[in-house]
Design a protein around this nucleic acid. Structure first.
Lengths: 194, 194
DNA sequence: ATAAAAACCGACCGATCATTCGGTTGGTAT
DNA sequence: ATACCAACCGAATGATCGGTCGGTTTTTAT
């Protein structure tokens, strides 16, 4: 792995666990065995490093979902939504650092003033909401789902799934066993009335 | 208002908007017209200041819900849950800074090592989940709600409500009009099958 | 083999950080 | 009037911060 990549990986870990402002370039230098000057050779400044991490996160998530969509097919819309929810949770489990980064408030704070941050974040959430919405819309056509506004229902659904995932990162309760309840709630939200 | 209180209010604003590590005592001193020494007269250090803020947040939320419970009564469990959801959203709207603080990751990071932080956060979420669970349990008894595990259903429900509230703070989309969809989803999750 | 380019290094810089401390002020009890 | 104490102040401190720069090593292309 190139040193530039090693820096990105280590910085993702540090930024997600200790926060952007809670991470010093000295820490990052120690963790990567790269001199501080080397880090600034690859990235113009600390913020640029963070932006590149966010770019990685965005590409990773978009690629993963594109691949998921191409390699799986479902009987109907309801099954597709359920599959997407399951895939989202497993992806969040495999890439803990990247998702923890998205669960911190700092990226969204940056997005208020820096359009580059905003566009990466928008890309992530637009992608996620689009997939949820697509499953819902398909489900409405094939009769497996009933929803008034597919977009709004997708938002509420995603808020629920992401909320459960985030609740786990709080480490206040062991909420890991909520998967079944989550899926059940999804089905109830989408199910057409008998 | 006492200077100590003014410091607490201003610090809540700064910590929630710029983060704990993104706020300097110099900033806080400027915003409160209090010398830096004065802040350290009232609070032993920056972390102790943050802990006192979290204590305020906890007391505020617990008091608000206790008052809400004492002054309102509902026809059945389903109505109670719906009322609690509505009250939670309005409370979050009135105390933006306090809830934004809870939506940042830093308090939970502190809770990993500092038991005082952990106990305040646990108190908040235990209170919230208890109220959701109570509504669900009452609803099961009066027939307005059906749920397998009241506690787990309460968690999923709360994750959904809080997830929507948080989504608004991202300022990526205008998700403010999700209230109706949220309530609808709540009812669908809890509704007994015809 | 050689030259150009890219990667890498760490001492150094000015700014800023949380915290300390010696001292002043204003109110209150005696 | 005196003594006391909590509230308040701001200059000083040492550590740490992000970032720079001149120079060395490694890689690549010719």
């Amino acid at each position: 792995m190139s040193k530039r990549n090693a820096i990105l990986v280590a910085a993702t870990q540090l930024f997600s666990r200790n926060g952007f402002q809670g991470t010093s370039m000295a820490q990052l230098s120690r963790l990567t065995d790269a001199a501080r000057g080397t880090i600034f050779h690859h990235f113009t400044n600390k913020e640029d490093l963070f932006l590149n991490i966010l770019k990685n996160v965005q590409e990773n998530i978009l690629t993963a979902f594109r691949h998921h969509k191409e390699t799986t097919c479902y009987e109907n819309g309801m099954e597709m939504v359920e599959g997407v929810v399951t895939f989202y949770l497993s992806l969040a489990g495999e890439n803990e650092d990247q998702f923890l980064l998205l669960h911190r408030h700092y990226p969204y704070q940056m997005a208020e003033t820096n359009p580059a941050f905003r566009s990466y974040l928008e890309a992530v959430y637009t992608c996620l909401l689009d997939i949820f919405e697509e499953g819902i819309s398909i489900g409405i056509l094939d009769g497996s789902v009933k929803a008034e506004s597919p977009r709004n229902t997708a938002m509420v659904l995603f808020a629920m799934v992401d909320g459960v995932a985030r609740f786990n990162t709080y480490n206040l309760y062991q909420a890991g066993s909520l998967y079944q309840d989550l899926i059940t709630s999804c089905r109830k939200i989408l199910a057409p009335g008998s």
